[in-house]
């Protein structure tokens, strides 16, 4: 139930993200909502269920980002989940600033991973310098745009967890 609800929330976030940013003329600086959801899942879920959810969210993002080959964001989300899951055993997020910092680092990592995977698997990506330079150019703005959304997404999902009364292990300890 919780996983389906999180998946639907991510679905809606991704669906509204594109037209909303387009209307606001901010399409070039899209926050990575799916990544934020995966970070929350990594910090709050059991491994197998979280991994499955990260796969689904990655696939969902692959569906919305038509320009990239299917599987790219699945890999990125799975790795992001694994890293966050490992961190969750040692990391205690006590503040909004901590959540934002995590989002910035994760966004940077995801961008680097995207660059690496695209160079390896996407035949067209390396044909010109536009692909790599675009990813490089968008790295910092995307991280900075994503970070402010992190506390809101974490808070909303935390409320959802509270509503579903699944557990009391809030991300915000």
């Amino acid at each position: 139930m919780r996983d389906i609800a999180i998946f639907l929330i991510a679905f809606l976030l991704l669906a509204f993200e594109s037209p909303l940013l387009h209307e606001a003329h901010l399409a070039a600086y899209a926050p990575d909502m799916a990544l934020l959801v995966v970070l929350y899942v990594g910090l709050s879920s059991r491994f197998e269920r979280g991994l499955f959810l990260a796969l689904g969210l990655g696939l969902l993002k692959d569906g919305f980002v038509m320009a990239s080959p299917v599987g790219l964001y699945m890999v990125i989300m799975v790795i992001a989940f694994m890293v966050t899951y490992r961190l969750s055993q040692r990391l205690a997020l006590r503040s909004i600033l901590g959540v934002m910092l995590l989002a910035v680092v994760a966004s940077f990592g995801a961008s680097l991973l995207e660059l690496f995977l695209s160079l390896v698997f996407d035949r067209h990506f390396g044909d010109s310098s536009r692909g790599p330079s675009l990813v490089f150019g968008a790295m910092l703005p995307e991280a900075l745009v994503t970070a402010p959304f992190a506390p809101a997404v974490f808070w909303a999902l935390d409320r959802l967890d509270g509503f579903l009364a699944r557990k009391s292990d809030s991300v915000f300890h």
Partner: peptide
Amino acid sequence: VPLFLLYVHG
């Protein structure tokens, strides 16, 4: 699995 999908779609 995603790497395979990525390979196929790349």
